[in-house]
């Protein structure tokens, strides 16, 4: 594969919402670095408090990093000139979890969608055609243009929200839990639609979610977050099937596998109660880490916070697969041992 410049590169980003005397509170996001490539489905997964939503908001430009830098198409997101910022805001659109809260109940679908065309030189006829095409694209009938949000179901509303996001021809869609609020039978429809849009329009879709099944279906690459830090990032297959971080292993094994014949054994899942706040020093995951225990509590884990780094497996370091663990190379082997015992 040829190396082209990434769409996004996130350099050492920290976001601290705390002010004044609450300064001691852990930052929402700490020292995160990663790249997102053009046209990929990029998943950001984590549990509550992991910083996944904060990272998503920074990528859209809703918030600015306290430290570090986010570069989009070669330009830093903070400090863009007016015209650049405008094209950035147009190019990156966001879809939220709750389709009931993200549409104005007093505005018809036509009103909502026409905002996207407000600053374009178009006759009203052209705009009409464009809006009808847009509805067709997300699988709704053009006759629905003059209806109001309350006339639609959750799945249909999420389609409208998607249509609104697409009305300005974005190149990136950041979707925060786009299907979590939907019924199971409707989730599949919206996921298929997102997949089709990604392929036909060449969209980059960044999906922020807690749902491992959804990222496994949708994403090409996955970043795993824990307590504001990036713990691992890599190809879908690597993360889901051959992860090199003990937290990722724990997270995946905690999800019910959906097979009554093989109820999951969970040798790795430790209580969250052990670590409501991360330790001041050392690895944030250390208090819950099965690998640390298995390796006989190495000193490093409680003295140094590991950085997400390329793995030293094979002939050259794998730049596409980063893990923040001192003993990442040992994870696959140790995981096999843990499962046997």
């Amino acid at each position: 594969m040829t190396e082209e410049a990434p769409l996004y590169s996130v350099h050492n980003v920290t976001k601290d919402f705390a002010r004044g005397r609450r300064r001691s509170v852990r930052p929402a996001l700490s020292e995160v670095s990663l790249v997102i490539r053009r046209g990929e489905g990029f998943g950001i997964v984590g549990e509550s408090g992991s910083g996944k939503t904060t990272l998503g908001r920074l990528l859209v430009g809703f918030d600015t990093p306290t430290e570090g830098e986010i570069v989009f198409e070669g330009r830093a997101v903070v400090g863009m000139k007016r015209a650049q910022r405008r094209s950035f805001r147009q190019g990156v659109q966001m879809v939220f979890q709750n389709p009931f809260a993200s549409l104005n109940p007093f505005r018809s679908i036509r009103d909502t969608l026409s905002d996207g065309y407000a600053h374009r030189r178009m006759s009203s006829g052209e705009r009409d055609t464009a809006m009808k095409d847009l509805l067709g694209l997300v699988g709704l009938h053009e006759s629905m243009l003059d209806r109001y949000p309350h006339e639609f179901s959750g799945g249909q509303r999420q389609r409208i929200v998607l249509a609104r996001a697409l009305s300005v021809n974005p190149s990136v869609l950041v979707a925060d839990e786009p299907v979590s609020a939907l019924d199971v039978s409707i989730q599949a429809q919206v996921l298929n639609l997102l997949n089709t849009l990604k392929k036909t329009l060449g969209l980059t879709v960044i999906m922020v979610t807690h749902d491992l099944r959804v990222v496994n279906f949708f994403c090409d690459r996955i970043a795993v977050m824990y307590m504001g830090r990036l713990v691992e990032v890599g190809d879908r297959d690597t993360i889901m099937n051959e992860s090199s971080h003990p937290y990722t292993r724990m997270l995946i094994s905690a999800a019910p596998n959906g097979d009554p014949e093989e109820r999951s054994e969970r040798p790795w899942v430790s209580s969250e109660l052990a670590a409501s706040e991360p330790p001041a020093e050392g690895c944030i995951f250390a208090p819950r880490c099965w690998l640390r225990q298995q390796l006989g509590n190495p000193e490093e884990c409680v003295t140094t916070q590991p950085r997400a780094r390329p793995l030293l497996d094979g002939p050259a370091p794998d730049e596409a697969h980063l893990a923040a663990c001192h003993f990442a190379e040992d994870v696959p082997e140790q995981a096999r041992l843990a499962q046997v015992s």
Binding site: E47, H210, L212, A254, A255, P256, V269, S270, E272
Partner: peptide, 8 residues
């Protein structure tokens, strides 16, 4: 609940 809590 988060998945690791759910499991417990």
């Amino acid at each position: 609940l988060d998945v690791t809590v759910q499991a417990q």
